[in-house]
Nucleic acid binder design. Structure first.
Lengths: 114, 114
DNA sequence: TCTTTCCTATAGATTATCTATGTATAAGCT
DNA sequence: AGCTTATACATAGATAATCTATAGGAAAGA
């Protein structure tokens, strides 16, 4: 999911991809390619979502009922699948974000210990 | 690696286990059981390192030359394998911590975006 | 003697991610 | 017309770290 902009190929922090996708979709319906672009830009290109990670992840989100999908036309005049958060997806984002923070803070406590 | 103290079974943030182990060993030589305890306590029991994750991880660290191991007697009078950071391991910790921070901050930028 | 705590370890399953690949259309350039 | 680039979706198969479950054993204390 994450790829060093360098050569180091670090696929770090799996498990956060779904959270990032859900968060991105809070801005409104978006297609996969757009989601990847948004995350890339917003993270200053540190986070680069691979297609092989993204599309399977979107399928999982669909299956879980956290997003719905609809084929539409993009401003570029292409067919694209727009994903939209469901109410369940919104709740899930809250849960995942809280859990993520809990763990990040726990890791920080260890990493900052003398 | 991580286990909710509740029931939610969240095995979050794989990839950070090695970093936590290396960091813990900065305090001095320690055996596996002690490492798990230290991380558990320091993280207020949020991070619970499973044996099935820890020992394979320690094997990997040995293979990579980031730690050395030595059988010794514990204060409790038990046989235990004490692991110790190598200079290479110290360097690796710096690298991993820097990379971890880079990614955590990138994720934070996405999660804090409007 | 029984139970708890301490301590190590591995086999096998799970699962998310990555790599590689394939398809296809729009737009812009020459 | 032909070429390239950017856009856009998707899947198959490999990889690898983690989890689950299990095994063993020794010390200490009840």
């Amino acid at each position: 999911m994450v790829k060093d902009q360098g050569q180091t190929r670090s696929e770090l922090l799996p498990g956060t991809l779904e959270m990032l996708v859900l968060k991105t979709l809070m801005r409104g319906p978006m297609h996969g390619y757009g989601i990847a672009q948004y995350v890339g830009q917003t993270s200053d290109e540190v986070l680069q979502i691979e297609e092989g990670s993204l599309y399977p992840a979107l399928q999982r989100l669909l299956l879980k009922g956290w997003v719905t999908a609809e084929w539409r036309q993009t401003p570029n005049n292409r067919r694209a699948r727009y994903y939209q958060l469901t109410p369940l997806g919104r709740k899930q984002l809250v849960v995942e974000a809280a859990n993520y923070n809990r763990i990040i803070e726990a890791i920080a406590r260890v990493m900052q210990s003398a």
